[in-house]
Design a protein around this nucleic acid. Structure first.
Length: 452
RNA sequence: GGCGGCGUAGCCAAGUGGUUAAGGCGGGGGUCUGCAAAACCCCUAUGCAGCGGUUCAAAUCCGCUCGCCGCCUCCA
């Protein structure tokens, strides 16, 4: 299996030393609900995780919550609620969203505020080793103390643009970043050897990943925006702390979601939340939309493409409903699995893997028309769909009463059809359509489904 | 200024040196059906932003040009 590594800029053979893959995916700062960009990232890595498991790896998947941060403090103050309440609200919302998107839960979801002792230990070690310094109650990492700084970004520190905001009185060098921030009056804080304060953003990921996964991770993933400074800083902190190189074997970054010309981001205010997206499209369609583009490529948000994905998902569902002839000549499904695996083995080529699945669908439908045995092929389609993370379930959220009424109308209509009373039959079909129900007359009887 | 990426049919999107340029959606024609729906069959890029170059061979490598985007500041 080959995976593209941001660090080397090349596809590398993936050879985890153990049977268990240690995977860390940067999580969200919980001060707001998740948006489509999060869905893109977390669905991409969910597919990767599912595929690794499909290939026989046990995956220990760690995803953090950043539950203390300037934005959390500010938002809580705006709403005049305790920061803890804000955090709990959005952690709960996070789970609602990822469950609705059929994203597998991580093995562990550590929270920054629950890892303070480890964070303090890491910072103290960095100070002791001369990689960090205390300044007015805060602690900063000294970038020039780590010669490898810039290796992930492929840029030397000298070439980095120094902006006004990065220059402060308390830092020795504009590139230095905070490990520990001293608390302002009234802010939530924890006791440390350097006074009351709270952890910086980058250090929490170092502390949490090392605590839960060890000194070297197999995969560390996140959005491309995290390459600099977040992941660059993590490498610096982690390798200086442990003395072990590499901190991460494979760095994976997903391409960004763009809204028209711009990227979707909180600061631009052009967000589509996951909840809004799910009101319009099924989780399967959102997933298909996302993975029909390669995970490292940018993806433009498009309602037209989402609706196209909805129709594509329906095609999968129909193929699972197709009828075959048990015991007849069977459709050969193995070739599609071979294609699926070949393409996924090459840096998770999901777009082509999905193409193989669509070809399998055509083969199932052909087999069905020809009266072949398609049961194994359908089982294969289900298997591959599971690897991608499709549910392929129809969203029939109707009450038993509603279903009964639909069945009754269909029975009446079929009475008219038998009597060749087409006008009346068509009238009922129209009635059902108005209820949002689409019907199909097949040789085996009439079936119905919810029309989107 | 530095680093990275993108430009392929009406739309989305694979393909990164060599058979007819995947797949989905949409569109057109046909089969089936009372009619639909679903499904199946056929068609829908002599060309991959443009211009040069390397090569027996390029969407694919190199150079230049044009257009677009991301990161260097919180962000998946």
């Amino acid at each position: 299996m080959k995976i593209y590594n941001t660090l080397s800029g090349q596809k590398e053979e993936f050879l985890p030393p153990g049977s268990e893959v240690k995977m860390y995916v940067c999580g969200v700062t919980v001060y707001d609900v998740c948006h489509f960009g999060h869905a893109l990232s977390y669905i991409s890595f969910d597919v990767i995780r599912r595929y690794l498991e499909y290939r026989g790896y046990k995956v220990k998947y760690v995803q953090n919550f950043t539950d203390i941060d300037d934005k959390i403090i500010n938002r809580a103050n705006e709403r005049k609620i305790p920061w803890k309440e804000l955090v709990e609200t959005y952690i709960a919302e996070f789970y609602v969203d990822i469950d609705a998107l059929n994203i597998k839960r991580a093995t562990i979801y550590p929270r920054a505020t629950e890892e303070i002792p480890k964070i303090i230990e890491v910072i103290q070690t960095l100070i002791d080793k001369g990689h960090a310094y205390v300044s007015e109650g805060s602690v900063y990492f000294s970038v020039k103390s780590f010669p490898g700084y810039g290796k992930l970004t492929h840029q030397s520190p000298e070439d980095m643009r120094v902006t006004e905001t990065s220059v402060t009185e308390t830092k020795e060098d504009p590139l230095d970043f905070a490990l520990w921030k001293t608390a302002k009056p009234g802010e939530p804080s924890w006791t440390s050897p350097w006074g009351e304060g709270r952890p910086g953003w980058h250090i929490e990921c170092t502390a949490m990943s090392i605590k839960h996964l060890g000194t070297t991770l197999d995969i560390h993933a996140g959005g491309q925006d995290l390459i600099f400074p977040h992941h660059e800083n993590e490498i610096a902190q982690s390798e200086c702390y442990t003395g072990v190189e590499p901190f991460v074997r494979i760095w994976m970054h997903n391409g960004f979601l763009q809204m028209g010309a711009d990227k979707m981001s909180k600061s631009l205010g052009n967000l589509v939340t996951i909840k809004q997206a799910l009101e319009r499209n099924s989780a399967d369609a959102i997933r298909l939309f996302i993975i029909s583009s390669y995970y490292r490529m940018p993806l433009r948000y498009s309602l037209e493409a989402l609706d196209a994905a909805e129709a594509g998902v329906e095609r999968f569902r129909q193929a699972l409903k197709a009828e075959g002839k048990q015991g007849a000549e069977a459709v050969d499904a193995d070739q599609f699995k071979v294609r699926f695996i070949e393409t996924m083995d090459d840096d998770f080529g999901a777009p082509q893997a999905v193409a193989a699945m669509f070809d399998l669908v055509r083969e199932i439908n052909r087999g069905s028309e020809k009266g072949m045995d398609i049961s194994r092929a359908q089982a294969m389609l289900k298997e591959l769909a599971g690897v991608i993370g499709f549910t392929l379930q129809e969203e029939k959220k109707l009450t038993p009463d509603e279903e009964k009424k639909i069945e009754e109308l269909i029975a009446v209509r079929n009475g008219h059809r038998r009597a060749r009373e087409w006008k009346q039959a068509d009238e009922i079909r129209k009635q059902l359509a108005e209820l949002g129900v689409a019907i199909e007359d097949t040789s085996k009887g009439t079936t119905w489904k919810i029309a989107r």
